[in-house]
Design a protein around this nucleic acid. Structure first.
Lengths: 360, 360
DNA sequence: ATATTTTTTGCAAGCGTTTTCAAAACATTA
DNA sequence: TAATGTTTTGAAAACGCTTGCAAAAAATAT
């Protein structure tokens, strides 16, 4: 009985089966499935119905091979060991689900050389478009993507070209606000834990830190800027150097929350208290920030929103609708919590007591 | 010049191009690429070399359509809003990268009905195998997978059948240890914030809690068990009920770290201190646990390891090597941090003072 | 040198779709 | 009623790869 398909049949039901069952050609079935206009309504109904009845599910590979849409988008991330990435991915995932798209995840594990290879595979592969979160080496392959007219959107990195669709946060403004806040609290010696210099977000934050000092007429001391790596370990190391300075800072601005965690570690190791002895500010507002003790004052990035926005942009690009602006900038804002207060010595200069605690 | 391929050519280089360039048939190229044994060494060399030179990258869709391996595995997760999932995924990702596989991520967003649909799409799709993290409704489709001989491994759920390859942690033992620890500290009234009862991990933890009480001859009080949902909010609500009890507990064991966070919230809302007024234990040891204040004593699950192990199992399954055991159990262990101490009233029974603080 | 076996290779079919092109069916007009 | 125009449908060619089968080439045995 062809109308009684064996439910235990191992083979999948194809467009052919649906065609046979509904008495039309497979081309017609394909057209119905793709919403082609010129199909008789009654035919459409019948096909749709048998497809449903047979439990037909499109074979994406075949579809995409034949030139159709796969409804899969690729996501290239440096790594998963990071709450920050996780948040962005959540936003992407949410928006994708709403649009009925699936997600293919590529992790480069921070291996720079892997990026171009991945991108190549991705592009000649199944995905309809590509999302890149903080790419390490975009210039190496974005030009190619563009030439192929392959849809892509870059998240949280900019400045390497001026044609790539990009979603970023106001890194500069956020860092400026944070620094200004510390200054307004009375801090004059503010340490800065920098991020990976290849990333525009890192350099922007550093620039804003300097700009804020400048605006408030505080002279810049290069010793107060130490390199971190956007990870806890780097923050810890950088903070140790800062706290060992002859005149240590009364506040430390870490380039992201992970580094701030490292700063907390170092501060505690020196037997100091936050915020009493030293204030700390982070950047990102990941889940951990609110849970830390004391809760971390930090610059909130709308991470999920960035993911969502980028996804919407990409989906439009795939539909052939280029976005009005190539670059979308989302606002950050300073979240005040318990990790900051006015410096212990209300009068500014005498950090003498503090520096006595310095570790050898 | 056929030997000078245009680098700007939009079309991808195919197996045909490689064949033409190296003067063999496309089948031979395919064989070389798939490591087929009976190819003359010199031929193999030549093909490999031209493939490299031309920058050939296999088209996964075509390969998988034709019946080959896609080197992609699918991962079905309930959601991304959870540090716990993230950890497992990291383990998976790591192991997959090592084996040169890619990852396709499917999120059900905790929508039970979506699971079967997804599984169907996945199976007739591109992936070579499927990993399922805490599936909500496995019975609905695992039988089908098995019948099709489709490789899959279940992570952190068990008990719904006895043939599915599974990786779990010692949930029972972990919860038993945690409860015993609290009892040894002197606690007699121990609250329990339960997890989602559909998950075996949740019921096992509850059972172990009861077993530990029983072993130590502490009578079970149903009022001390409140339902949570494995999320912060549920933990908060459950803890509020517990703290409002006529004789509130002196310790609360939360079914996972997220719930424990909610417990912290409730405790603070009641103006109580951890661990001075009340001890708290969690489960999972996610990244947050160490950062919370006070640092959370919790049962560590080897999450990344679970991901890695499951992935290795799956990869073997795909290769046609069934694992020696269908079910792999990884050990948990209790991580002692600052959220527990002996109950304030060293003598056990008089919890009078505590209950006075009770909120109206 | 010839027959036989074994190793290598090529051809063709097929995987499940989309899409172009042309034919069939239907509706409309003269 | 014939001619013309439209809407619907079907057949066939791709898409890029794997694989069974058979032929060619090389190696071995007689």
């Amino acid at each position: 009985m062809s109308s009684q398909p064996d439910p235990n049949d191992i083979r999948n039901v194809t467009i052919m089966d649906v065609a046979r069952e509904s008495g039309v050609s497979y081309s017609t079935v394909s057209r119905v499935l793709n919403g082609y206009e010129f199909v008789k309504d009654s035919t459409r109904q019948r096909v749709l119905e048998t497809a449903e009845r047979l439990g037909y599910v499109a074979n994406l590979q075949a579809r995409s091979l034949a030139g159709g849409r796969s409804r899969i988008i690729g996501l290239l991330v440096p790594g998963l060991d990071n709450a920050y990435i996780g948040e962005v991915v959540r936003g992407i995932d949410e928006e994708l689900a709403r649009a009925n798209y699936d997600l293919m995840l590529y992790t480069t594990h921070r291996h720079r050389g892997k990026e171009p290879v991945y991108v190549k595979t991705i592009v000649n592969g199944i995905v309809d478009g590509l999302l890149l979160i903080v790419p390490l080496d975009p210039v190496a392959y974005l030009k190619n993507l563009r030439e192929r007219q392959f849809p892509y959107v870059v998240i949280d990195h900019q400045g390497f070209d001026d044609f790539s669709p990009t979603v970023v946060a106001t890194n500069w403004q956020g860092a400026y606000d944070a620094t200004s806040y510390l200054i307004q609290l009375g801090h004059r010696r503010i340490g800065f834990v920098a991020g990976t210099p290849e990333l525009s977000s890192a350099t922007e934050r550093l620039n804003a830190y300097q700009a804020a000092l400048y605006t408030h007429e505080i002279s810049f001391d290069a010793a107060l800027v130490q390199n971190g790596d956007f990870q806890q370990e780097g923050g810890y190391l950088a903070a140790k150097i800062l706290l060992n300075l002859d005149v240590p800072p009364t506040a430390i601005f870490a380039s992201n929350d992970s580094s701030a965690l490292g700063v907390y570690d170092a501060v505690h190791e020196f037997g100091l208290r936050i915020p009493h002895d030293i204030s700390v500010v982070g950047f990102d507002d990941t889940l951990q920030a609110a849970v830390m003790y004391p809760p971390l004052t930090t610059v909130r990035q709308p991470l999920m929103d960035m993911g969502r926005t980028a996804t919407r942009m990409l989906l439009n690009l795939i539909k052939g609708q280029p976005p009005p602006n190539h670059r979308i900038v989302l606002p950050t804002n300073l979240v005040l919590r318990g990790s900051c207060q006015a410096p212990a010595t209300t009068s500014v200069q005498s950090t003498a007591q503090l520096s006595e605690r310095r570790m050898k």
